[in-house]
Design a protein around this nucleic acid. Structure first.
Lengths: 159, 159
DNA sequence: CCCAGATCGACAGCTTGGCTGTCGATGACA
DNA sequence: TGTCATCGACAGCCAAGCTGTCGATCTGGG
C-alpha cells in the first residue's frame, strides 16, 4: 500500500490538516481563541451575501437550523450582529462586525505566511503546480462549503 | 478569497473530499454500505500493529475511549473480532476478519481507479508531481497514522 | 515478596455540529 | 382575501470527539 490511490487521499488530507492546525494555533496566538474552521467558512458566506439564516444554510449546504446554531456561535464571539430586517419582519439580517472582519484578515494573513513557508520548502513552482492541478481536477469550485462535521471537529483551523 | 493561502487549504480539502466521497459511494455500491473513512483508517492501523484499544487510540491520535467506540463500530460491521489476550488479562486483542480484509481490498481497488481517473484528466505527471510535493512537505509520513507532528496540535488524548 | 504506580477497558456525561419535525408569524400572490 | 411559501425558533435526536473515574490487572523498585 505504498504508491496507491489511498495514499493520494491521505496526502491531500494531511496537507489540509497541516495548514488548518497551524492556522488555528497561530490565530489563537494572535488573540482569536476558540475559532474553528466553521466560523471562518460561515463568515465568508455571510460576507458574500448570505445575510440570513435560511440563506446561509443553503450556501453551506446545511439545514437552516444548523445554520442558526452556527450563527449563535458567531454572535457569541462577537463576529456578527443580528438585526431585524426593516422590510421583512420574518427575517433577521446578519451583519459582520469589525471584529469579524479583523479575524478574517488575520486568518488570511496567516494562510499567506504558511503558503510562503511551503514555497520556501519545495519551491514556488511546485506549490503553483499543486494548485493548478487541483484546480483542474476540481473544476475550480473550491468554494464548496459542505464539509462534514467529522472533518471540521477537532482539527481546528480556519480553512 | 482568491489566490490566497486559504485557497490552497480549500483545494487540498476539496481534493480529499472528492476522493473520499466517491470512494464511500462506490464502496456502498459494491456491497459495503455504511462504511466511513474512519473505518478504513482504523482497520489499517489495527493491521499495522495496533491490536488493542489504547494502542489504536495512540496511533490515531484520539482518546482510547473514542477508539473503543470506533472498535465497537468495526465489530458491529463484522470487520474485527475482539478476543481476550492470553498473556495479559487487561487487554482485548483485535483481529481483522476476512470480511474486513475484503473491504480494505475493495477500497484499495476503488482508490486506485479514482487515481487513474485523475491521471486521465490532468496527466500522470501532474498527479505524480502533486504527490511528490505533498510528500516533501509532510515529511513523507503519510501512510502512517501515528504522525504526532501535524496531528497532535490541540489533541490532548490520554497518550 | 509486596505494594505503588502504570496501564487496560468500561461507564457516565459533556460538547460540537450536523439532522428532522413542528410551530407561529409573516409575506406573496392568484 | 384566502392559500401557500418562507423565516426563525423550539424540541429532540445522532455521531464522534472529549474528560473523569472506576476496578482489574500487570510491573518493577525496595
Amino acid at each position: 500500500m505504498s504508491r496507491s490511490g489511498a495514499d493520494l487521499a491521505l496526502l491531500l488530507l494531511g496537507g489540509f490538516r497541516a495548514l488548518a492546525d497551524r492556522a488555528t494555533a497561530e490565530l489563537a496566538a494572535r488573540g482569536y481563541e476558540d475559532v474553528r474552521p466553521v466560523h471562518d467558512f460561515a463568515l465568508r458566506a455571510i460576507l458574500s451575501g448570505a445575510d440570513n439564516a435560511s440563506e446561509l444554510g443553503r450556501r453551506m449546504s446545511i439545514a437552516k437550523q444548523s445554520a442558526a446554531k452556527t450563527i449563535a456561535g458567531l454572535e457569541e464571539r462577537g463576529f456578527v450582529r443580528r438585526e431585524p430586517d426593516p422590510t421583512d419582519r420574518r427575517r433577521i439580517r446578519l451583519h459582520v462586525t469589525e471584529h469579524g472582519l479583523a479575524m478574517l484578515r488575520e486568518g488570511e494573513a496567516i494562510f499567506d505566511e504558511l503558503r510562503e513557508q511551503w514555497e520556501q520548502q519545495v519551491g514556488a513552482d511546485a506549490i503553483k503546480g499543486l494548485e493548478d492541478t487541483l484546480r483542474r481536477l476540481l473544476g475550480n469550485n473550491t468554494g464548496r462549503l459542505d464539509t462534514p462535521g467529522w472533518l471540521m471537529q477537532d482539527l481546528g483551523g480556519d480553512a
